[in-house]
């Protein structure tokens, strides 16, 4: 160890993204992305669909090379075999025919990358039970995952990601396809995990509103560019207008944030939920 600084210090960033640009098929989909995530911090990665959130996750996970810039995880370049990052991907199709119980999925988070068959080594079952309890999933431990509700499946996948004791948890659109109650439950669970276990949580979403009560910081992605800071610093007309490259307004309505684009011409104003591309829709669905 030649590095004089302890990389696990309280104030050191667990994730440091610095000047990352990504080209896909000759197109720059992310430009000069930079932000830090610290232990125990709850960070939202907010932006419209197609803005590059999943691509950014793939870069952080080492599944997609960055064209330029650097990603440091725990102060070091990524080592994919170290379980320092837990990941909940957006698309996990849990078919009802899949012969996996919730506890099997969680157990695979512990040793699914190993050769051989799972032996009953001391504490494996207890570790799985503890993890299921931590995500309030004890009662569904022996149910087939494919038969669980969307919110229950999400909790099982979070347990799968957490059982290897990562210090950073990445979740790609975990709130998509959830009803309002399941959405609130998952957000509360993640906030509790971040606080109690001092795990940094980085969660992507196209709507900022469900995360407002728990988010410490956010990274806003639009048109391949990012802005990061607290909600108050980033969700402002000047900042978002610069990101989108066109004028947008930010409205606060009943505690919710709406990003509003001044439409070209005199046809009036189009409104979009935060994160949606301006002028892409003209109605906000009440939640």
């Amino acid at each position: 160890m030649t590095d004089p600084r302890p990389s696990t210090g309280v104030d050191d960033a667990i994730l440091s993204v610095d000047g990352v640009s990504v080209w896909l098929a000759g197109r720059e989909v992310l430009h000069d992305v930079r932000f830090d995530v610290r232990p125990g911090e709850f960070t939202g990665l907010i932006g419209p669909n197609g803005a590059g959130k999943t691509t950014l996750f793939r870069v952080i996970l080492g599944l997609q090379p960055a064209g330029s810039g650097s990603v440091l995880v725990g102060g070091r370049p990524l080592n994919r075999r170290s379980p320092i990052i837990g990941y909940v991907p957006q698309k996990v199709f849990l078919d009802p025919d899949m012969p996996l119980r919730a506890r099997d999925v969680v157990g695979l988070g512990l040793d699914g990358h190993r050769l051989g068959i799972p032996l009953r080594w001391g504490g494996r079952r207890e570790a799985v039970d503890r993890m299921l309890a931590a995500v309030d999933a004890t009662h569904i431990a022996d149910a087939r995952v494919g038969n669980l509700s969307g919110g229950e499946q999400q909790r099982v996948l979070i347990a799968h990601a957490l059982i290897s004791r990562p210090r950073l948890l990445l979740l790609d659109e975990p709130l998509a396809n959830l009803d309002i109650r399941a959405e609130a439950e998952v957000v509360a669970l993640l906030a509790r995990i971040a606080r109690e276990q001092r795990i940094a949580v980085l969660i992507s979403a196209h709507d900022v509103n469900p995360l407002l009560p728990v988010m410490d910081r956010l990274v806003y992605v639009a048109a391949g560019k990012t802005a990061s800071g607290t909600t108050g610093e980033v969700i402002r007309a000047e900042v978002l207008s610069a990101l989108y490259g066109q004028h947008v307004d930010v409205l606060h309505v009943h505690g919710r944030i709406l990003v509003v684009s001044g439409a070209e011409g005199a046809s009036g104003i189009t409104v979009e939920e935060t994160g949606g591309a301006p002028a892409a829709a003209d109605v906000v669905a009440p939640r």
Partner: peptide, 19 residues
């Protein structure tokens, strides 16, 4: 067995674990 199960469950989750 476990590697096949994990990559059948989700190729992405398996790739993240270095499979």
């Amino acid at each position: 067995y476990r590697i096949l199960l994990l990559s059948s469950l989700s190729p992405e989750l398996a790739a993240v674990r270095g499979v």
